[in-house]
Amino acid sequence: MREQLGRPMRGVVGIAARCVCGNPTVVATEPRLADGTPFPTFYYLTHPGATAAMSALEADQVMKEFSDLLADDEDVAAAYSAAHAAYLGDRAVYGEVSEIEGISAGGMPTRVKCLHALAGHALAAGPGVNPIGDLALARGDWSPTRCTCVNPGALPGVA
C-alpha cells in the first residue's frame, strides 16, 4: 500500500478488495485515526490503475451524468440510499464517531461527489451494492478482472 500511494497508510484495519494478482485494491480504515482525526472514508481506493481511471472519469464530468441519473431514476436512488446504509453499517463495526455520524462517502445518499470512494465501496462490497460505484467501474478504463500492477503479487504467472 505504501508503494501504491507513495506514503504510509493510516488507520488500516484490513484489505477490503484485492487485484487478481493479490495486491491491495481497496483498504478498510478506522473511522477515527490514531491522531484523533475523524475519517469517514471507510473504503479507500489504493490501486493506481483504479484511482487513475476514477480521476479520468471525474475530469470528464461523468459525475454530473451520474447525478442526473440519481435524480431521474427512483430505483437507482433507492439502491444508492441502501448503499449508504450498508456503508455506515460496515464502518460501525469499527466504532462510532459522533463527528461523522450519518456521513458515508462519495456524496451518498443524495449526490455523487467522489467516484474514488464509490468505486472503492463497489469493489469491497461486490457488484449490485453500490449502483453508482458499479457504473463508474464499468465506465472506466480499468477492470478488477485484469492485473495492471507493476509488480504483481500473490498469484504466480499473473501479469
Rank of each mutant, 00 (worst) to 15 (best):
L118C: 02
D73L: 05
A119L: 02
E99V: 09
L115I: 07
P40T: 04
Y44E: 01
V20C: 09
P144A: 01
G89Q: 09
G89Y: 11
S67A: 15
L88P: 00
G128K: 09
T110E: 11
A159L: 13
D141I: 12
R146W: 13
A138N: 14
S98P: 11
P38G: 02
T46F: 05
N151W: 14
Y87S: 00
P24N: 01
A136H: 08
A79N: 09
P127H: 14
I15H: 04
Y44M: 07
G22D: 08
S104G: 02
F39L: 10
T29S: 06
A28R: 03
G95V: 11
R146I: 13
T46M: 05
L45M: 05
E65T: 14
L70Q: 00
T25P: 04
L135R: 14
A17E: 03
G107L: 10
I15G: 01
R139A: 12
P144K: 00
D134P: 02
A34W: 15
G89R: 11
T110V: 15
G22I: 10
D90H: 14
G22L: 07
T37Q: 08
V13E: 10
Y87E: 00
M108L: 04
V97G: 00
P31R: 05
G120A: 08
A78H: 11
K113T: 12
C149A: 02
L115E: 03
P127T: 15
V13T: 14
D72Y: 06
A53L: 06
E96D: 12
A79T: 15
N130T: 04
Y43P: 00
F42A: 06
L123V: 02
V93Q: 15
P131Y: 03
L45D: 03
G36Y: 11
M1L: 10
L123F: 06
A16F: 07
A122S: 10
G102C: 08
P131V: 05
S67N: 13
G95F: 09
A138K: 12
A85K: 13
R32M: 15
L88A: 05
V150C: 11
I100K: 00
V27R: 03
V112L: 07
A92Y: 11
R2L: 14
T51R: 10
A85N: 12
L45H: 01
A154V: 12
A50P: 04
P48E: 03
V112I: 11
S67Q: 11
L115Q: 03
N151F: 15
P8A: 15
G22N: 07
L70W: 01
A52Y: 09
